[in-house]
Design a protein around this nucleic acid. Structure first.
Lengths: 210, 210
DNA sequence: TAAAATTTGTTGCTTTTGCAACAGATTTAG
DNA sequence: CTAAATCTGTTGCAAAAGCAACAAATTTTA
């Protein structure tokens, strides 16, 4: 799994070589797609931010994943189950490439570079996804709100190579992402500030320990 | 993503066509592998049961995944992070195929059928993993012990096409898998029995509602 | 730019979960 | 076959998290 494949360059160079690839733009708050039928959509987020959202039977909103530039998503990653409505919601203006997974696999009739190269790098692309999901599982496995918050902050901080980080979420959404009650999370965040463990201004968090 | 690829047949037919594939057997409680260095191990569980386990900083045991026949696992699925010791522990006698991911990708010098066919089907194999991880995330996102228990029981029940299911875990391990306190889980299970929602005898659970 | 909608921040109270400890049942190992 | 280890089941108490409700700040939109 060499990180030799640069998805950004790939899109730039080859997205126009195949007429089966759909390009679409969505505005903030628009629904990009739902995971209902098994059309095997495979999507790449060219720009913008989006959330994969589930509303459970108790009416709780659940942010399953948060997508930013170059992330991949779509039905193809899910076994569609009964009582689950999954939506991908644009959180800002989004440019998306959409195509159907089977086309990639069964070789495109066009013999275009796009499908050719994509097929070649598909395993590492999907492995990247697996890695992200494992990180998500680690976070959700933490047993207290405090550990979830600190775990998430640490993650963003290490990606950012800095002890300061910007939240890609509102605090309301962060609670839905961590799967906890918002007011309880706010309380915990207050304690973390009072104890001098984190500092917060606007959507910036700074980790103060070590 | 046609489910045309039968991993069991594949192994039977081709595992001996490549001398780079390592076959190993582990006894119950032996450590099959650890995710520490990035050797890009890719493993297939031919038979037996195993758990992927993490011990967190508070000493809590966490069962990240449970593997049974034909499941795939290994370092290649993980971004190795600092404070994380991940172990794969055999829960029964296990037969494993081990090989290094890069060999698959960069075409095996032997030009053996094993690598050839595996490479072809790798994306759908990894997509199956993604699906499993998404199911895991859904479970961990549930907000109460009751919902986690019922969610897990439902899952096993629908796989089993029956309202009765066998737990592949001891209750102690189930608590670590659901990421909750064992005694709290036992209490909740007791309530579920008292309310006539589930029935339990031995390691068999029956769902009584609907 | 004014009104509406959403987000942040806070609190009192209730419910759920975790922790510690222990006894009995079951399984494993010598 | 017996002793040791592990697992199941239970409880009282403490701590954490959820719920509901509201005011103030901020952002969106018409």
């Amino acid at each position: 799994m060499n990180i030799s494949f640069n998805i950004e360059d790939f899109i730039k160079d080859f997205e126009n070589t195949c007429n089966k690839v759909q390009k679409r733009t969505f505005l903030k708050n628009e629904i990009i797609t739902t995971y209902i039928e098994k059309r095997n959509q495979f999507c790449i987020l060219k720009s913008g931010n989006a959330d994969l959202v589930r509303y459970d039977l108790n009416g709780n909103k659940n942010i399953v994943e948060h997508f930013s530039q170059n992330d991949i998503f779509g039905e193809v990653f899910y076994t569609i189950t009964t009582n689950n409505e999954l939506l991908v919601e644009a959180k800002s203006k989004c440019e998306i490439l959409i195509y159907i997974y089977d086309d990639i696999h069964n070789k495109c009739k066009n013999n275009c570079k796009f499908h050719q190269i994509l097929a070649e790098h598909l395993p590492e692309l999907i492995l990247g996804k697996v890695s992200q999901l494992n990180t998500r599982i680690e976070l959700l496995s933490k047993r207290s709100i405090r550990d979830k918050l600190l775990g998430y902050f640490n993650l963003l901080s290490s990606r950012n190579l800095s002890s300061t980080l910007s939240l890609p979420f509102s605090l309301t959404d962060l609670a839905d992402y961590l799967s906890v009650d918002r007011s309880a999370m706010m309380r915990e965040l207050k304690f973390l500030k009072e104890e001098g463990i984190v500092k917060k201004s606007g959507n910036k968090i700074t980790l103060l320990y070590k």
